[in-house]
Amino acid sequence: MAKGVKPRIKVPKQASAGEAITIKTLISHKMETGLRKDADGNKIPQSIINRFTCDFNGSNVVDFDMKAGISVNPYFQFEAVVPESGEFKFTWYDDDGSVYEKTKKITVS
């Protein structure tokens, strides 16, 4: 697991059915591009978050494939519709094989 990785998520606590809600996510990650060299001139291997997904009650909201052109501490904003109350599941996939998961509940009236 890469050092100091910490996800942050912003989801409204409640919404009405069918309403478009805005979701923001941020994860602290160095997003090493693989293009830099260390002090000895050796290439520093790429180490990035390469995929991010958001699902709601088992159904997909978004699925993003990321490359090294995404900035340090990857940030995303997108919109979802929620048909019923339930749980969002956010997943980040690291090049090193680590998977970071976080969930958020929402009440739909």
Binding site: G4, K6, R8, K24, L26, S28, N73
Partner: peptide, 12 residues
């Protein structure tokens, strides 16, 4: 505060 990347470090 969500857009502010400095807040990641405040969390830490």
């Amino acid at each position: 505060d969500f857009e502010n990347p400095g807040m990641i470090f405040v969390d830490k």
